[in-house]
Design a binder for these strands. Structure first.
Length: 294
DNA sequence: TCCCAGGCGAAAG
DNA sequence: CTTTCGCATGGG
């Protein structure tokens, strides 16, 4: 069974760019719609102009607030105006008009980004699929079937051997340790919404496998801390190239530069630049003919 | 065979 | 304080 819901969004809003920019790992394009899994539900979402049509598996009483997750109620134009500090970011904003930062569930976000470390996106997705298959439960929507994200208690009980078999590698211990901590301290996690960026970051970095970058991803993608600027290899590279003449710069310096240069919503700048960097690389590697930005 | 991937933690400088 | 190194796994 499924429930249909419609939302009006304030443009610019791009479901496509938001789902494909690398902030989420469990969404797939499917004949003009997108199918995704959040918590115990499968969602099917379609955008037509300023309207989102959403179907959800399970009951209406489900605790996942999809409108909030999809950032369907806010207007990003003011934020974009604030980060629009130069020609580079301006181009990225134009290129991916409507890209939104969603609001993910803290649990799923923490685990997903622990898995993301020293890894690539196709493999991150595959590992999360595997994990869900073995530690989640079967769920379905309109004949389409999949598995829920594993519950904290399920992963807390897993063994290193079993997790390694799913391809987690050296991250298996991180996942188990962090799951146990999460189970013990779930109330503290919820309280992070009211904490400052620094306080919340210090706490998140107590989790095994969570350093500065992963903590910043969780703060940005699950807690709406838009001053978080996650610096991974791609962001490091493109900031060096665009703002430091290609000279080597440490992640710490990159973060400090970004916070000053793009302002209090620098997390949004990060996501546009991250997606923009991937776009530029694809053009360079393959079909260099279309839409060269030089 | 080498290189890379949305880094982290521990060790060394 | 900053820099360096090992880490599992799979794809290009």
């Amino acid at each position: 069974m499924s429930n249909g819901v419609k939302f009006r969004v304030k443009l610019p809003y791009s479901l496509k760019h938001s789902l494909e920019c690398g902030q989420v790992f469990r969404w797939e394009e499917c004949r003009g719609s997108y199918l995704g899994i959040i918590g115990d539900s499968i969602f099917k979402v379609k955008q037509r102009d300023n309207r989102l049509t959403i179907e959800q598996s399970g009951s209406l009483g489900s605790k996942t607030n999809i409108e909030d997750y999809l950032d369907a109620a806010s207007d990003i134009a003011p934020k974009l105006r604030e980060i629009d500090a130069d020609e580079n970011i301006h181009t990225a904003i134009e290129q991916f008009k409507g890209l939104r930062i969603f609001r993910q569930l803290p649990w799923e976000c923490i685990i997903s980004f622990i898995i993301s470390s020293y890894n690539n996106i196709p493999r991150i997705k595959a590992i999360i699929r595997n994990m869900s298959k073995f530690y989640g439960k079967r769920i379905s929507l309109n004949g389409y079937s999949d598995f829920s994200f594993p519950a904290p208690s399920s992963l807390a009980r897993a063994s290193v051997r079993d997790l390694r078999k799913l391809g987690l590698g050296f991250r298996a211990e991180y996942i188990i340790d962090s799951s146990r901590k999460f189970v013990k301290e779930e109330e503290r996690i919820a309280s992070l919404y009211e904490k400052t960026y620094e306080e919340a970051k210090n706490y998140l970095m107590e989790f095994s496998g969570v350093g500065e970058k992963v903590a910043d991803c969780v703060l940005l993608f699950a807690f709406k801390k838009y001053e978080a600027f996650p610096v991974d290899i791609r962001i490091n590279r493109i900031i060096e190239e665009l703002y430091f003449k290609g000279k080597k710069v440490s992640p710490k310096k990159i973060r400090e530069f970004a916070r000053k240069h793009f302002g209090r919503f620098c997390g949004y700048a990060q996501q546009y630049l991250y997606h923009y960097e991937g776009y530029r690389r694809r053009i360079k590697r393959g079909k260099g003919s279309l839409l060269c930005t030089e």
